[in-house]
Design a protein around this nucleic acid. Structure first.
Lengths: 184, 184
DNA sequence: ACAAAACTTGAGGGCACCCTCGACTTAACG
DNA sequence: CGTTAAGTCGAGGGTGCCCTCAAGTTTTGT
C-alpha cells in the first residue's frame, strides 16, 4: 500500500524512527508487554507523541516484526537447500528456535494470536509454508513419524516458547529429545 | 505446627471455609491470578474479611495445594507398582499431566516459583521423589535415554503447562512424541 | 442480659498502566 | 520573515487491582 499521503515532517520522521528503535529494543529485551511509557521514555519522546505515531501496541508490532520474520524465509531456504530431508527438518527447527531464543518479543509474537497485526500473521504463514514443505519431504522419505503435521509444529513452537523463557539454557536439549521422538 | 491459639469464632470459621471453597474453585477455573475481589465475591464475604483470613495470595495457595498435591503421591505409588519400568514412567507422566490439565491453578503451581508457600514446595519435592525413582529404574533397565534426569522433567513440566493452556486437546499427542524421544 | 473480644464491612488511598486533549512549538512554504 | 498546518507535550482522567482501617456487628463467657 504505502499510501504516501503527505510525507512526514522532518521532526516527526525522526521521532518515528526513535520510537521504532526503542520499541524494537524493549520488545527484544522484555517482551511485547512493556509499558508504552517505557518505550516513550527510551525514545526520549512524550507519551502523546508515541500515541500519535502508533495508536495501538499492535501498530508497533506490525511495524517491527514482519521484517524480523523475514529471517524465517532465510532459514527456510537454507533448510530447503539441505539434501537430506531429516537433516533439513531438524536443522530448520534448531535455527527457528535459536532465533526465537534471542528475542523475547519474537517469542511472544510466535506464541500469541495477533488479530490486529495481519501483516505479522501473514509473515508467519509464509514461514509455515517452508516448514510444511520440509515436513512433506521428510514424510515422503519415510523418515518422519507418519502422522506428523504442521499443526504439531505450532504446538511445539508454543512449548518451546515456554522452555526458552524459563530455562534458556535447556531448550536445545529439550528440542533434541522431542526431535528424537519424531523419527519414523 | 497447628498452633491452636484460641479456636475461631463460629462465623469466622464459616467464612474461612467459604473463602477456601471459592478460592479452590476459582484457582481451578482461572488460575492463580484471579483478583482477590473475585474470590471474596464468590465467597459472599467482604474484601476486608478475605484479607483477615488470608493476608496474601500465597496464604491461599499454601492452604489449598498441599492437599491437592497429595494426589501426586497416589499416582507415584501407582506407577511404582507397575512392574515394567518403561510403562511405569510413561504412565506416570500421562497421569501427572492429566491431573495438571484439569486444574488451571495446579498448572500454575507446577510452573512457578512459590518462595512464600514452602508447604507447596515441599509437596512438590515429595512428588519429585517418586519421579526420581521411576527415572532411576528406567535407567537401570536401560530403556531410558542414558542422560535423562529429574531436571529434564522440570523442563518438560513447564512445557506441558504451556501446551495444556493453549491447546488442551493436544497435550497427549505432544507428550507421546516427547516420550518416544526418551527411549534408549 | 451485658460487656468485652472477635469479627465483618466497604469506602477509599495507592499504584501501574492505559489513553486523550487542549495549549504550546516548530518545520515548511511562499 | 510570517503564516499555518503539522507535530509535540504532559497533566490528568479512566480502569483494575492491591490493601488498610475506623466504624459497626456478632459471638462468647459470665
Amino acid at each position: 500500500m504505502v499510501t504516501a499521503s503527505r510525507p512526514l515532517r522532518a521532526d516527526a520522521a525522526r521521532n518515528r524512527e526513535k520510537l521504532l528503535t526503542a520499541a524494537t529494543e524493549l520488545f527484544a529485551e522484555r517482551g511485547l508487554d512493556v509499558p508504552m511509557e517505557h518505550i516513550a521514555r527510551r525514545a526520549e519522546v512524550s507519551i502523546g507523541t508515541l500515541y500519535k505515531h502508533f495508536p495501538t501496541r499492535d501498530d508497533f508490532v506490525a511495524s517491527i516484526f514482519p521484517q524480523r520474520l523475514a529471517a524465517l524465509e532465510v532459514i527456510g531456504e537454507k533448510a530447503l537447500a539441505e539434501p537430506d530431508p531429516w537433516q533439513a527438518l531438524a536443522g530448520y527447527l534448531e535455527d527457528l528456535y535459536a532465533m526465537q531464543s534471542e528475542d523475547r518479543g519474537l517469542n511472544d509474537v510466535l506464541t500469541r494470536e495477533l488479530p490486529n497485526a495481519p501483516q505479522v500473521v501473514a509473515a508467519c504463514h509464509r514461514g509455515a509454508g517452508h516448514a510444511g514443505i520440509l515436513i512433506d519431504r521428510a514424510l515422503e522419505a519415510g523418515v518422519l513419524r507418519a502422522d506428523y503435521s504442521i499443526a504439531d509444529l505450532a504446538t511445539l513452537t508454543r512449548a518451546m516458547a515456554q522452555v526458552i523463557r524459563d530455562s534458556p539454557g535447556e531448550w536445545r536439549r529439550f528440542l533434541s529429545i522431542y526431535v528424537e521422538g519424531l523419527r519414523a
